[in-house]
């Protein structure tokens, strides 16, 4: 008997609509022209984009953006781990102060915090002093020279990120089965050793995906330092377009670079997740790269593996 498969006419309609929209997008991006100031030129001025894509000020801005991202995320993760451990402490003062920290830094906009660190600190304290509390001063520094826009940016972003990271780390820690703590304790492991070697490595599986998210978010949030006269990628492109009025091409330059780095981070996250997935699933699926090489080898030699030859035959006693 002949089998008549179910038809899906609306899928064809939807596909046609999407193809049409893609065609329009490609056309407007690459082939459409516009008359500006009496001269006919490409709508998106790709030549201008190309000209500034690797311009020195842009590359300098990229360095600042990446530096801020790395500093803020590393510091944020460290602060986050400390805060998470404090919040899980039976000591009320420790858990309470961690709660207040998170309450404060999550409760105020990061833009306000950045401005505060840049402007507020120098206004409140003309001099910053290192020494014995209520006692002798050892080093005294001028606030305005110490707290540059970069320092204020790194400080503000780190402290804010720490509050968010602590909740992510805490979620990871409490996701680990209590039996793991007991098993470690029964072997004579201290609480610190258990946390470092047993709990945190397992918590990583829960911690990594949202941390990847945070890192990508941070890369873009660093653009806020432009309001405290920091020259990051975004401000660098702004400075150029303020001089030559090529606003859109330079926004495209900034966007292309942001997209490039978020793509790199997404790939990095994929491999870090795989690393911490050890022991969690019986057989990890091949990476896209492994799949590609396997497919190439397959077309060359064509050894079709029989199902029974699969290496992950379920174990039995």
């Amino acid at each position: 008997m002949k089998v008549v498969p179910v038809r899906h006419p609306w899928r064809w309609v939807a596909s046609a609509v999407i193809l049409l929209l893609v065609a329009m997008l490609v056309n407007t991006l690459l082939f459409s022209h516009v008359v500006r100031g009496g001269t006919r030129e490409g709508r998106f001025q790709w030549a201008v984009v190309g000209h500034y894509l690797f311009a020195t000020p842009v590359l300098r801005g990229i360095v600042v953006t990446l530096e801020l991202t790395v500093i803020a995320m590393v510091a944020g993760v460290i602060i986050g781990i400390v805060l998470a451990i404090m919040r899980l402490s039976p000591n009320r003062l420790l858990s309470g102060s961690a709660w207040v920290y998170i309450w404060f830094f999550r409760g105020t906009p990061v833009l306000v915090q950045l401005t505060f660190w840049y402007v507020g600190i120098s206004y409140l304290y003309q001099h910053l002093t290192l020494g014995v509390p209520f006692g002798t001063a050892l080093v005294t520094l001028n606030s305005t020279t110490l707290v540059t826009s970069f320092v204020a940016g790194a400080l503000g972003l780190s402290l804010n990120e720490g509050a968010y990271m602590s909740e992510i780390v805490r979620a990871g820690i409490i996701s680990v089965d209590e039996g793991q703590n007991e098993a470690a304790a029964s072997l004579g492991m201290s609480k610190g050793l258990t946390l470092r070697r047993i709990v945190l490595p397992q918590a990583m599986r829960i911690i990594i995906p949202p941390t990847g998210n945070e890192t990508i978010s941070m890369l873009k949030t660093t653009s806020l330092v432009s309001v405290i006269s920091g020259v990051d990628l975004f401000q660098a492109t702004q400075n150029i377009s303020n001089a030559n009025y090529e606003v859109v091409p330079l926004l495209v330059v900034a966007s292309l670079w942001y997209l490039f780095f978020t793509s790199v981070m997404t790939i990095g996250q994929y491999y870090i997740e795989r690393h911490y997935a050890r022991g969690s699933s019986r057989q990890l699926p091949p990476t896209p790269l492994q799949r590609l090489t396997a497919a190439l080898r397959h077309t060359r030699t064509r050894p079709v593996p029989a199902l029974s030859e699969a290496p992950w035959v379920a174990p039995h006693d």
Binding site: D177, G179, Q180, E182, A183, A184, S186, I198, P201, Q202, Y276, R278, G279, S280
Partner: peptide, 10 residues
């Protein structure tokens, strides 16, 4: 332990 409690990441 009843639930073994081996360290799954090792």
């Amino acid at each position: 332990f009843q639930r073994f409690n081996l360290f799954p990441h090792m």
